[in-house]
Amino acid sequence: MSLQEINVKIFRYDPEADVEPRFDSFTVPVIKNMAILDVVMYVQNYVDKTLAFRCSCRIGMCGSCAMYINGRPRLACRTQVSSLGTPDITIMPLPNLPIIRDLATDMEPFFEKWKKIKPFYVGKSELKDPVAIRPDSGEREFIDQMLDCITCGCCYGACSMVATNEEYLGPAALNRAYTLIADKRDAIRVERLKAVGRSYGVWRCHDQFNCAEVCPKKLVPTKSIQQLKKRCVLQKFGVFK
């Protein structure tokens, strides 16, 4: 599809100044390979300098430009205008997170939950480095798939369970927890499992796969969460140690 111009509706809201949010409309000329991040940059550079949004790497690595674009969370830098298949584009901030201003959301609740699962590797003291898990082992192959999370928050924004229950840890934190719990070298696997096995952990996931649907890295957090549920039950029967 070849477009000359697109009509962009952008969510605007400053919680400190505005009574309620509004949408501003802009007409933006399309250039070849234009991404949504280019669109919001165009608006900010040439039309309205007060537009707020967050971005950094521009190559889909940092995860800071996640926005709600035409009805689903996506990375603005990795979403081509042409891929949306329409000249009418609506851009909103990521759902399920407080709004700082316009398209910039406050990621603190997301990272507070991320911290709860202790998202760092703790090696067993009796192990001597380097301890290797063979790359072709089933365990490694599964963990490797799930390690690419860039903490963009797309899954968190898409999750309807986070929307109904703000205490739910969310797909990204649980996926991270799984990559550590599945690692036999980890010294605090059981402690971590207890953290995710609480009421607002894995049990709130009902396999809707919204997270997998929107993940820009094609991860499937639901799969990790199912593995965690299984381990929680096994741990209760004393099988998982």
């Binding site: 096995g197 009421s199 049990w203 929680c232 209760k236």
Partner: peptide, 14 residues
Amino acid sequence: TGEGVLLNAMTWLL
């Protein structure tokens, strides 16, 4: 009752 890991795991399993 409440937050117990066992309750959550068992209700899920059952």
